[in-house]
Amino acid sequence: MSSGSEDILQFAPWESFVSPTFWHKLAELKLDYDRLSDAQRSISGHYTNRKATGCLLEADYTSFNSTGQPPKFSHAAVGTIYNKNTIEEFKALDKLTLLSNEGKKLLSDMCNDRVAGDPSLLTRFFVLSFADLKCHSYYYWFAFPCPLTPTLKLQGAVTRLSDLTNSSKYAEALQSLAPESQNFFILYANGQQNEVVETRSLSSLNESEVEHYYFGFADPSEYEHPAWLMRNYAAYLLQRFPCFVGKTLRFLGLRYNQQMQMDDSLIWNVVQSEACDLTKTEDVKFVGWELNKNGKMGPRMVCMRDSMDPAKLAENSI
């Protein structure tokens, strides 16, 4: 796909991956704590850029812990669950309004620059759910809000990190990066000053040095497309530094294989030519609802009867 012409950069959408323990914990919370309350709850998810399959965002029982500790080689995503009391409520809820409300939270984090302090805010997601506790069926719909900004144009071919000259220097700098700050970071590479290559945090970004930057992120995508989260990353950078509009930005998707080598990491050179003001939240449109298994706009359902129904459990334990 990556010819020399100006292609639109496309992103691999997130796929939700929910562990059964997530539903067990949700059922427990609903029965013992929330009861009739359908107030929203903060949850967390995680994704890995080590030997990624698809572009998965995973949720499990730890999603409900108050202090999320993502598994090793994984990064945290910030989420919310809206668990409704009835299937009718679930169905009738205005999905577009919910998406845009969640999207506005994302925008306010971007515009207030809270993102610089906690870049994981860029990986915001939410779940609309209904737990049918009698039938042990769980209806759920994930969404990964993202402002519909002007498209990024891909400049030239997608390059692999290992194809860069001096790629070992880059790899060395990346290895020194602490695991918890690998989700979003800057790789500074200055060819003039005797090859300075180092990693920096997003908060130290200096707009005049943009030509020396690679905007790095942990990329959970296995495809040639970068993961969905880069879209929010780019939107944030262009919002924070309007002078980036029209400039070539280099994004580095950090990808590890099983042996923790980063040769598969990809670099995209992109340009956004039109400015876009995300502070005018009323004008901004959002996308991000996950498609169901049939590729349609709809929720998913999972039946947990075999591991939850006491009758089934008794039957299976003989």
């Binding site: 691999a12 959408p13 698809g54 572009c55 519909l148 498209t151 990024l152 495809y223």
Partner: peptide
């Protein structure tokens, strides 16, 4: 909403 930036994967 037409969203040209979604890859089909």
């Amino acid at each position: 909403l037409v969203d040209p930036a979604v890859a089909t994967t």
